[in-house]
Amino acid sequence: MLKSYLEYLGLEKGRFQCAWLSSAEAERFVKIAKATIESVRKLGPAKKLVRKTFAAENC
């Protein structure tokens, strides 16, 4: 739902991803990580939801 919501608001498709993954699925993890990197790389640097000023200090 979150993915659908963010994309509804206008975040680029592929910027935000989620996956069901067990700690035993190392190979699948690599595969998903690679696919995510690839899709984000295609999109280029993020412009939306990037804080331009300062982040809070004590987080």
Binding site: E7, Y8, L9, G10, L11, E12, K13, K48
Partner: peptide, 9 residues
């Protein structure tokens, strides 16, 4: 379009 939606939001 997504960018338009983001702009309105």
């Amino acid at each position: 379009e997504p960018d338009e939606r983001w702009k309105i939001f």
